[in-house]
Nucleic acid binder design. Structure first.
Length: 848
DNA sequence: CTCTCCCGCCACCCG
DNA sequence: CGGGTGGCGGGAGAG
């Protein structure tokens, strides 16, 4: 006892530690670090103990007077290997992760910090209460969240391990290194196993397969989901909700499938997983639930699944008698699963707004198309969005979320004018919308997408971008989906249109998009938007905060952005794929922050000057890449005429908007539009904010098909893109004027793509991060310029080469982005090489 | 208050 | 039987 007392005193007296605790910020790192060391040393490795410091605390002091820390908390301290620690740190370092943790804090340059930071927090608990408080606060629940934990877990392994090398995962080891109980790891592993990302090898051992087979797995799940008629079930349930009247019908699940099926799921042939066999036990739940949950998304037209519907379906399947009591439990489990899926960037949180209120839901942002092919198509049409305008009441908004998350808004800058905050965030769907959507969807279905996912192109993009799937997922291209434009779009629209609808918005905005738009224009966003943003947690949990991060991510991803070659017509398909690849690649490259940063900076300089948005990206890109110098940014040059279509941003890109050159567009170019929405288009990705400045036009473009007519939206711009129209969907065009392209214009003809991309650049992140740019940078606001130009010439460029694998990871580092695209192309190669890419850092860690 | 979801008890099973 | 797994739900953090 005494000892303890003494200890405490000592502690108190000792400045150092206290300080730590106290300080957070920057120092924190050091401190943290410091702390850790100390802890570690003294302590023995704890095993897992994660958190209970309490006990230890006491002791600790005794032992170490000096360092009271307890480590315990640290997550685990895990002494075992220094490496482990590094890994952890690395993980933490990953942008994503960080973001979460800090979210708001800007980036911290150092990644480690975060971890440290966290740790420290925990640690402190140790000592003093004061400290404790301190710590406690921060770490908080979020730090312990399954999503974050999952990200850390994922950061340890490459998304796409080289050839099949298999990495074995020791649950104990992971638990230790992540500082959590093994129980938590089970939760993660079970979900991953359901998607075949890992398989159980032996007792405590799992083998890591990575995402290589994910498309296949998803395809299988989709198929199963179709068999089971989940779609119908969902529809019924939704209807019920809407119209209680019908209820009953809904319930019955599909006929065909027996419950048993579930098990099957697991079985899919999975390449990798051998182990499957093992499922011993029951494969109950979590795995199966996870698969079913994923299936719901895959079969859903909207790609949005509300938890209550999912829970109901699961309950029905598993039990004959729907037991209400189970509902709550199911929902809990779904959250667990959703956290993991979110970490995988397969889904993101959104809210569906119904008449009655919001409902928690998740939107699929993963690859839409699993087809091997890979072409991605953008679905521009999809944009259809709904009119968001007033969603208010009914809100039409629909909002499906865009798939991707966009990053946020503001990410770039906080200041950013537009906050785009809302952007990503959530989307709400109104019931009405649903209906509408449904209808639309239906139509859409017709579209070719194999997989069905119709998802929004954006999504696909996103996915691509992100990484995830390396595989090219082809988006469903043609399919137009409806989707709501991401906020950014709206923004654009808004800006352009401004007048248009924005107003509406509100909330509605359908959420996302709408709001954004609005936001852009109007500062005020609807609360909803805010929420939205918040909500999304996933990406990193926090969506917002991390905006920066996100951006980063985006960027990275962003790179992907886009540029697609457009091909004039339809080639889209073909082309598209490429494009997509390109994008993907881009991201990869960048990955690295450093580079990016520098680039960014450079860029920023340039860009910034203008303030355009472009700066962010654009510059970077330019710099980096390709670009040619010539250009100028802003002014784009020639291209002025260019028009761009706005596409919702891919998931990875937060905050970035994707523009397709309209040039291609029929009008402009006269391209033929292809009949579908094809996509092959080049596109640029811009920070959303940037867009806002531009005028928006709607055109049918791409989708060609329609020639001119397009859709709907025109004017409305932001607001609605009619669903209906969707198919063809209108596209928004951005007025050339506005746009600028920085370099792009310059770009040599080479690839348009490149150019495009270049222009796009996304680098923003970096810049921002640096501060150079900063958020808010004027640029955006400024004008229009930003845009890139992509020029598009008609040429389609194909990126052929591009392939990218992008893998990426989500976790990418922040920076990257910008250039990515361009570079990417060129550099892709390199990138590829570095598979690690994504996580660079991580890789290190991860690799292991 | 509601939404999330962490935490860990304790049952199930395998070896 | 012991220990790995993992269902399950209380209860609390966050908003």
């Amino acid at each position: 006892m005494e000892v303890n007392c003494l200890t405490l005193k000592d502690l108190i007296s000792r400045p150092p530690r206290l300080d730590f605790a106290i300080e957070d910020g920057e120092n924190a790192q050091k401190e943290n670090i410091f702390v850790d060391l100390s802890r570690m040393a003294p302590k023995t490795p704890i095993k897992n103990e994660p958190i209970d410091l309490s006990k230890q605390k006491i002791f600790t002091p005794e032992r170490n007077p000096i360092t009271p820390v307890k480590l315990v908390d640290r997550q685990q301290v895990e002494p075992w290997t220094p490496t482990a620690n590094l890994k952890i740190l690395i993980s933490a370092a990953s942008p994503d992760i960080r973001d979460r943790e800090k979210k708001k804090e800007l980036f911290r340059p150092i990644e480690n910090k975060d971890d440290v930071f966290t740790d420290s927090m925990q640690l402190d608990a140790v000592d003093d209460s004061a400290v404790d408080e301190f710590e406690k606060q921060r770490p908080s629940r979020k730090q312990k969240s399954l999503g974050l934990l999952c990200q850390k877990f994922l950061a340890r392994y490459p998304s796409y391990p080289l050839s099949t090398e298999k990495t074995t995962i020791s649950l104990d080891e992971v638990a230790v290194s992540l500082g959590v109980e093994r129980r938590r790891i089970y939760d993660i592993v079970n979900v991953l196993e359901s998607l075949h990302l890992v398989s159980r090898v032996a007792k405590n051992q799992y083998s890591w397969h990575g995402r290589h087979s994910l498309p296949k797995t998803l395809r299988n799940l989709q198929r199963l989901g179709e068999k089971q008629k989940y779609e119908e079930q969902m529809a019924h349930l939704q209807q019920k909700e809407l119209n209680p009247i019908d209820h009953k019908s809904g319930e019955r699940r599909r006929d065909g499938c027996p419950d048993s099926q579930d098990p099957q799921l697991l079985d899919f042939p999975e390449p990798d997983c051998p182990s499957s066999s093992a499922n011993s036990r029951k494969d109950k739940s979590l795995k199966i639930m996870s698969q079913k949950f994923v299936m719901l998304f895959l079969v859903s037209k909207t790609k949005i699944v509300t938890l209550d519907v999912a829970a109901k379906i699961l309950i029905e399947e598993s039990q004959d008698i729907p037991d209400h009591s189970k509902f709550k439990t199911k929902v809990r489990r779904l959250y667990d699963i959703a956290n993991v899926l979110t970490s995988l960037m397969l889904i993101k949180k959104v809210h569906v707004t119904e008449d009655r209120g919001r409902k928690p839901a998740f939107k699929w942002i993963g690859p839409v198309d699993f087809s091997s092919t890979g072409v991605y198509s953008l679905e521009i049409g999809s944009l259809a969005a709904v009119s968001r305008q007033k969603m208010e009441d009914n809100s039409e908004t629909v909002a499906f979320a865009s798939q991707n998350m966009m990053p946020l808004p503001s990410s770039l800058d906080p200041a950013a004018p537009l906050p785009s905050p809302s952007v990503d965030s959530e989307y709400r769907v109104s019931p009405l919308c649903h209906q509408v959507l449904s209808a639309a969807q239906t139509d859409l279905k017709a579209l070719p997408a194999q997989n069905g996912l119709n998802g929004q192109g954006g999504i696909s993009l996103a996915s691509m971008a992100l990484d995830v799937e390396h595989q090219p997922q082809p988006l469903a291209a043609a399919q137009p989906l409806l989707y709501v434009p991401p906020a950014p779009l709206f923004m654009l629209c808004g800006g352009l249109q401004e007048g248009l609808s924005p107003g509406s918005g509100s909330g509605s905005g359908s959420v996302g998009g709408g709001s954004e738009v609005t936001a852009a224009e109007q500062p005020p966003m609807p609360s909803g938007q805010k929420r939205l943003s918040k909500e999304r947690r996933l990406q990193e949990e926090e969506e917002e905060e991390p905006a920066t991060k996100r951006q980063c991510r985006d960027h990275e991803d962003g790179p992907l952005s886009l540029v697609m070659p457009k091909k004039p017509s339809d080639s889209a398909d073909i082309a598209s794929p490429k494009t997509s690849e390109n994008r993907a690649s881009a991201p990869h490259e960048d990955t690295h922050m450093n580079g990016q940063l520098s680039a960014a900076k450079a860029v920023s300089g340039k860009a910034t000057t203008n303030g355009f948005v472009s700066s962010e990206w654009g510059n970077p890109c330019s710099n980096t890449e390709i670009e040619k110098p010539s250009e100028e940014n802003e002014s784009t040059k020639g291209p002025s005429p260019l028009q761009y279509l706005y596409v919702q941003p891919p998931a990875g890109l937060n905050g970035l908007s994707v523009l397709l050159p309209s040039s291609q567009s029929p009008h402009a170019v006269g391209l033929p539009v292809g009949p579908l929405p094809s996509l092959s288009i080049q596109y640029m990705v811009l920070p959303s904010p940037t867009l806002s400045g531009f005028p928006v036009l709607c055109s049918p473009t791409m989708p060609g098909p329609v020639s001119s007519a397009p859709s709907p939206l025109p004017n409305v711009g932001p607001v609605n893109f009619g669903l209906p129209g969707l198919g063809s969907t209108a596209h928004l065009l951005i007025g050339p004027a506005a746009m600028v392209n920085p370099k792009s214009s310059t770009l040599p003809s080479t690839d348009p793509q490149l150019q495009g991309p270049c222009s796009l650049h996304l680098s923003p992140v970096m810049s921002r991060s640096h501060g150079s740019v900063q958020p808010g940078s004027p640029a955006y606001g400024s004008l229009p310029a930003a845009t890139v130009k992509l020029q598009q010439s008609p040429v389609p460029v194909t990126p052929k080469s591009i392939r990218c694998t992008h893998q990426e990871t989500f976790f990418k580092t922040p920076g990257s982005l910008g250039d990515p695209v361009l570079r990417r192309k060129e550099r892709n190669q390199s990138r590829s090489s570095s598979s690690a890419q994504r996580r660079l850092e991580i890789s290190s860690g991860g690799t292991d």
